[in-house]
Amino acid sequence: IGYVLAIGDIGHNDSIARTRGVRSTLGTGVEADGAVDSTPAGTNVDGKAKVVQDATLEVDGKTYTIRELASQEMKNSAGATWDAATAGNAIGIWTASFGDQIDVVVSNNDGMGMSMFNAWAKDNKVPTFGYDANSDAVAAISEGYGGTISQHADVQAYLTLRVLRNALDGVDIDTGIGTADDAGNCLVEGEDYRYSEEDRSYYALNIAVTAENYSDFTDSTRVYDKVANQLDESKSPSKKVWLNIYNASDNFLSSTYQPLLEKYDDLLNLKVDYIGGDGQTESNITNRLGNPSEYDAFAINMVKTDNAAAYTSLLSK
């Protein structure tokens, strides 16, 4: 069973986690420094790559070999990562060389997954799996797209702004999250989200989207009914927020995440300025943060997750 893997950004936490998850589940992962190696394998048709290994799967008494035939970071010539067009080109190169060996296509996100699906996998009836539950990918499940993962973008967007709202109001950080607020907004821990005290972080929980339940996910920008109640402006007065999206052309961020943020900002009485980056450099974003004093709060979505200093140096002045 041969599969190919589209990797988003080799230095991005999400891309690393998703690559490790695929390899761990399929048994093709190799340990490196205490974790599964997330390094792209390049072309591995002969099974000799060092960053992955062959695995086996027994079905009805027959043993199959599972091999990662190829994987690469989908980065275009301008430097943008998670690039759908690059993924479409990659599947063309792979299929021209060893297409008859590809049984499954896997992608770190739906943008790249759909590009490979439309370029080759759909016509050749090869199941393709992505991540994000973008509307086009969910709709494509009825056309043979294998499945995707909803990262509960509605909860994710709500949590992004809710943590800010609570800090601005000076209330307990869990208000409207694990503890109901005055408007009745409340999520269920373990079902909708989890909280890590060690990381001081809230995490929206993933949901598998398959042929059995995809009709429930066709509208990716619908607010979550558990947290869809308007806050009282006398208790949560209007505040101004600066929020950046690291890559304005990213399908999930622009078509799912930001539209949800724009719905929740009204419910939470937040006036948000949305800044779209180029997906390549922090300076493309930070250059537009010239007047931080006019904002009450900031939500930062970095190009690289270890570049926080590029923002905090501006905000500390």
Rank of each mutant, 00 (worst) to 15 (best):
I141A: 02
F129R: 12
V126Y: 10
Q151G: 01
Y145G: 04
S150T: 08
A119T: 10
Y158V: 05
D123I: 05
I141C: 02
S115K: 05
A119Y: 11
T148H: 04
A119H: 11
N118S: 15
G146F: 00
I141W: 00
T148D: 00
A133M: 06
Q151E: 04
A133E: 02
N118M: 13
V155P: 07
E143H: 08
A157R: 07
Y158T: 09
F129A: 13
N124M: 05
K122N: 05
G144E: 00
Y145E: 05
A121C: 09
G144T: 01
A153N: 08
A139N: 14
A157Y: 10
Y158M: 10
Q156W: 11
V155S: 01
V126G: 07
K125S: 03
H152M: 13
V138E: 06
F129T: 15
G146S: 09
G144P: 04
P127K: 12
Y145V: 03
G147T: 02
H152E: 12
S135L: 07
A119Q: 13
A140S: 12
A140I: 09
A133R: 15
W120S: 01
H152L: 15
G146L: 10
A153G: 05
Y131A: 09
Q156L: 14
A133S: 14
Q156V: 11
I149S: 13
A153F: 14
S115W: 15
A133I: 11
W120H: 07
S135T: 10
Y131L: 04
N118E: 13
Q156M: 11
S135N: 07
